[in-house]
Amino acid sequence: MPDRENRKGAAKAPFFPERLVTGVVRLCGAVSTFLILVIFVQITTAVIQRYVFNRPIQWSDEVIGYLLVAMVMLGTAEAFRRGDHISIDLVSTRLSPPIARIQRLFSNLSVIAFALILGVSIWDSITFAYSFGSYSVGYVEIETWIPQVPIVVGAILLGAMAALRLFATLRGERK
């Protein structure tokens, strides 16, 4: 691990996991952005189908629900990377630098813990639903575990991004 005097150079040096994770997170953020446009187009199409062709798209609402889950879970790590998730800053903005560093460590650890709990819990649900063979009720009869998969992906991305931040804080970087 590089020492503190070297940290500018260290930050520039290619750090493979960082590039990999950041790349994947940005890619998923782009997919999430794309899904917003998909939702927009799908709802617009559904309205047109209903009024112009008198043939409502019956499965539209169900698919919108699944797309929303995917959109949120694929985008959350990218939002975390950009620092969009809000926190209560009444205390944290008034800390001295060393304490602020501990605060950042704790904050990143808490996000890792959250991602871990969410990921493990939903993984349990997915494996159970898969073996149980449960299907959704309605116009799109798919196995119920399928639309839950994005939550696992999102939890892994979020956890990995927070781990990177944790590591960066340990190395002494400010951001």
């Binding site: 159970f128 639903a129 149980f132 449960s134 299907y135 009720v137 309605g138 009869e141």
Partner: peptide, 22 residues
Amino acid sequence: IVATAKGDIECAFSLNFQWGKT
């Protein structure tokens, strides 16, 4: 249905058509 079978809760009530293809 899944929450009960899995044991997250002990008991539930469903309308019959909620079993669907399950």
